[in-house]
Design a binder for these strands. Sequence first.
DNA 1: CTGGATCCATGATGATACTG
DNA 2: CAGTATCATCATGGATCCAG
Lengths: 217, 217
Amino acid sequence: MTRNVRTYEHFCAVARALEKLGDRWSLLVIRDLTSGPKRFTDLMGRLGGITPKTLSQRLHDLEEAGVIDVDREAGRREVWYRLSPAGEDVGPVIDALRLWGMRHAWRLPLDGEPVHPEHLLRAVVSAIDTASEDRAPAHWHLAIGGEGYYVESDGRHWSYTMRAPATPPDVTLTASADAFKQFLFGGRTDGVTIEGDPAEVARFGHLIGTIATVVAR
Amino acid sequence: MTRNVRTYEHFCAVARALEKLGDRWSLLVIRDLTSGPKRFTDLMGRLGGITPKTLSQRLHDLEEAGVIDVDREAGRREVWYRLSPAGEDVGPVIDALRLWGMRHAWRLPLDGEPVHPEHLLRAVVSAIDTASEDRAPAHWHLAIGGEGYYVESDGRHWSYTMRAPATPPDVTLTASADAFKQFLFGGRTDGVTIEGDPAEVARFGHLIGTIATVVAR
DNA sequence: CTGGATCCATGATGATACTG
DNA sequence: CAGTATCATCATGGATCCAG
C-alpha cells in the first residue's frame, strides 16, 4: 500500500526489478504460478506458512506491477491468478535462484517439512540441464502421489512440465510422495515402481544422480 | 538476528536461496560488491538510502550465510568486504534481475535521482549481449567523471569491467557523469568526446542504441 | 466452503544522533 | 572509518471473523 516508501531510488535496473519482485513471498508466489493458473486457496496450500492477509496483499501488488493477471468472472465464485507475459519473464530469475540455492543453500528436508514433488523435480531437472552432457531426447512420466509429472529432453534442453508430451514415455515411475523423496535422497526403491527399457531406466537412474554433483557438500 | 523467524520452511531450492539472499538490500549489497571489495563507507555511499544499522546487519547476515568474506586486519582501521566464491555465484541471479528490470520496470531517471555510471553501463552491456548479434571483438574505454570503465567483447560475449583489458581501446569516450547520462538517454553529445576509428565509433553508437530494443516501452 | 478482511502483537526497517 | 544507540514507523504473522 505505502509502496512508495519501499523504493530504493537508485537508477539501476536491478533495484527497479527488486522494487517489484523483492518483497517477501513475491517470488514464491510467482514460482507457484509458473506451473499454471491457481486460485487463492491453491496458493495458500502450496505456500505453507503465508497468511491470507499477506498473500492477498502480494497478489494485489503483483497485479498492480503487471506481473500477474487476475480472472474475476462475474457470477463465478473462483478467482484465478495467472502470470502475465511480464510474469513469465521472471522465469530466468527463479531458475538462477534455484541453481544458486542448490549449490549453496541445500540441505536434506527436516522432519515434517513439506516436500512438494514439483519443487524436487524442478531441482532435479535444473541439475541435469546444468551439469550433464547427455541431452539426447527422452521423456519420463512420474506418477507421484496420484499426480502426473513429466520430464523431457528435446535434444537440447531438459524441461519439466505438468502436461504429458505427445511422445510415449521412455521411463515410467510410480510412487507416493514420500517414497519418491526417499528414492531421491537415499536411493531406496521401497514403494517405487520403475518401468521401461532397461537401458533407458539405467540412464534415468544415472541422470537422477546428477543432482549430487551440483549441490555443494 | 531472529533469522529463524524469516525462513519459509519449504523444501525448495528457490525458497532456500531467498532465505539467504532475499532480505531487503541484500542483493544490492552483493551487486555493489561484484565490482570489487569495498569498505563500509564505500557501500554506504553507493547504496543511497540505506541506514548504517541496516547495512551493518546485512553485512553480518551475508557473512554468516557464506556469501561475503570480511577482511579485518589487526591494527588497521579499515574493514574490507568482498564476495566469497558463493557470492560470486550470485552473479547470474543479479543479471537475470537486471534484464527483467530493463524489460519491465524501466523508466527515465527522476530529477535528482542519483545515477551511477556503473549501473548504466551494466544495463547497456546486458542489452547488447542479449539483443545484438554483433559479437565481434571490441574494447571501449569510457572515462566518466574521472573514473575509468571498460566494455569489451571477446568474440562471444560482451562484458563490463573496471580494469583496463590488455588490448588498446577501439573507442574512447570522455564525459562527466551527467553528460554521459544525457548522451545515453537523449543522444545529446554536448560535453562528450568520442575518439577512435570512424567505423568503430559508428558501431559503438549503433550498439549503444541496442538498449532501446530491450526496454519495454 | 472459498476468498478474503480485521484486529492485535511483534519483528524489521528507517531517521537521527552519537562513539571508539 | 566503522559502526552502535535510541526512538519511530512500517511490514508481517497469528488468530479470528465475515460475506457470497
